[in-house]
Simulated assay, not measured.
Amino acid sequence: MSTIMKFERLQDKQCESVISFLLSEKIHFSLFCLIDRVKFMPELPREIMENFQPISLFVLKGYTFDSIELTARGIIFEAGFGSENIGRYVEIGFRDILQVIITNPKDKDVPVFTRLSCRDLFDFTQEDELQKSMEAIMSNPHNKQYL
């Protein structure tokens, strides 16, 4: 398994642990997630879907918070949408949650989980590392005599 996949799984577990903790402590929270990966059951009308941003915020409190269920792959909850408050079940995979936020007692939003971009962290090859190492060695004029 690649380093990227291992780190993605680690972040999924961390996200799940944070949400599980917040649920057990009955702390309301919000999620930023990739809307194109969110599943609405049944589907929402097109005019409501068009109002979502690519990264959207779901505020989980009140009835929505009480309806939360954790699954092996993510979170499911019931929420109302649009002016008619159309009720839908919402399913979001842990992998698709970018940030978990709570509002602290001073009424400030505080991220308690933020997903990092694994590709930015680990997208390199051994050849890249060898090349960088060779360049570092060659940058010292005293090392050229050994090569």
Rank of each mutant, 00 (worst) to 15 (best):
E127F: 08
L57A: 06
C15N: 08
F124A: 04
T71H: 01
F32V: 02
F7K: 07
F7V: 06
R46L: 15
I4E: 12
K26S: 15
L57F: 15
M138T: 02
F7C: 09
D96H: 10
Y89S: 07
Y63E: 14
K144E: 08
N51F: 14
I68F: 06
V90H: 11
F21V: 05
C118A: 13
S67R: 09
K106Q: 14
R9N: 12
T3M: 14
Y89R: 11
L70Q: 08
R73L: 15
D107Q: 11
G74N: 04
Q126F: 14
S24V: 01
M41T: 10
T103G: 08
D109E: 11
Q11D: 04
V59S: 12
M41H: 02
T103N: 04
I97P: 07
E16I: 03
R95L: 07
V112L: 00
Y89M: 14
I97K: 03
I68M: 03
D96I: 03
S56W: 13
M134I: 06
I101A: 02
G80W: 14
R9K: 14
M1V: 12
D12I: 01
V112R: 02
E25S: 04
M1G: 10
K106P: 00
S2Y: 11
L70Y: 12
E25C: 03
Q14T: 08
G93L: 15
N140E: 00
N140S: 06
R95W: 05
F58V: 04
Q14S: 08
R37G: 05
F113P: 13
R9L: 12
T71Y: 02
I97Q: 08
E91H: 06
S117D: 13
S139R: 13
S139C: 10
E78W: 06
F77P: 02
F113R: 03
S20I: 00
D120W: 00
F113K: 03
G82K: 10
T64R: 02
Y146N: 11
I55K: 14
E91P: 09
D107H: 04
S83N: 12
P45R: 03
S17I: 00
E43F: 12
E47R: 15
E127R: 09
Q11L: 00
K6D: 13
D36Y: 07
T114Y: 12
F40T: 04
F58S: 09
S56F: 01
S17Q: 06
I4A: 00
V59T: 11
K106Y: 10
R46G: 10
D96E: 02
L10M: 02
I97C: 11
C118V: 14
F21W: 06
D107R: 14
R115N: 00
R46K: 15
A79L: 15
V112W: 03
L22Q: 01
K106M: 09
P54T: 00
L130G: 00
C118Y: 06
V59W: 07
P141G: 05
K13I: 13
T103H: 06
A136C: 03
G93D: 15
T114W: 07
I102R: 13
I75G: 10
L70V: 10
A136R: 05
Y63A: 15
G62F: 10
R115V: 04
A136H: 04
V110S: 04
K13H: 08
G74L: 05
L44A: 05
R115H: 01
L147W: 13
H142R: 12
H142Q: 10
Y146R: 10
E50R: 02
K39R: 13
F122N: 00
Q145R: 11
I19V: 05
Q99R: 12
